[in-house]
Amino acid sequence: MKIIGAITIVVCSYYIGFLISVSEQKAFSQLTGLIRLLDFLLQRITYSRENLGSIFADFKDDALLECGFLSVLNNTMGETYDTLWKKAAETLCVSPHIKKELILFGIQLGKTDFITQKERTEMCRSILITEKQASQPGLDKRKRSIRALGGLAGALIAIILL
C-alpha cells in the first residue's frame, strides 16, 4: 500500500513538472506567434494600408488560436482595438513583463498615424525578439529539468512520508 502511495506521489509530481514544462513551451510558441503577427501587421500596413480588422482576420497561428488570442481580436462587437488587444493579451501565458509591453503597445493600436503606428509596432517586435532570443537556447534543457525536478520532488515527499 505504501509503495503504491509513493509511486502515485512521484507520478503526480512528475506530471505537474510535465505540465509546467508544457506551459513553458506554450509561452515560447505564443511569443513566436506574436512576432509573426507583428511582422504580418507591419507588412500589411506598410504595403497595402489595410485596416486592423482585415489584418487580424487574415492572420493564422496555431498557438495564438489555441489560447484564444485571435478569437478575442476578431470578435470586435463595437469595441475598439486597444480594448480588444488588452483582453487578448490576458489570454497569453507569456512572462508578466512581456504582457505589460504588449498592453502598452495596445493602448495606441489603431489610434495613430502610419509612421507612429509603424514605429510602435517595430519597437514591440524588437522587444519580443529579444525575449525570444533570450529564452530559446535553454528551452529544451529547462523543460527536461522541470520534469526531472517534479519527479525528484515527488520522490522526496514520498521518502519523507514513508
Binding site: 494600408r49 486592423l52 480588422g53 470586435t76 475598439t80 482595438y81 493600436l109 495613430t112 509603424k118
Partner: peptide
C-alpha cells in the same frame, strides 16, 4: 470612440 468608428479602428489608413 468616434474616430475609431470612423476609421474602423485603423486611423493610419486615413493619413
Amino acid at each position: 470612440e468616434c474616430l475609431s468608428l470612423l476609421s474602423q479602428g485603423s486611423l493610419y489608413t486615413y493619413d
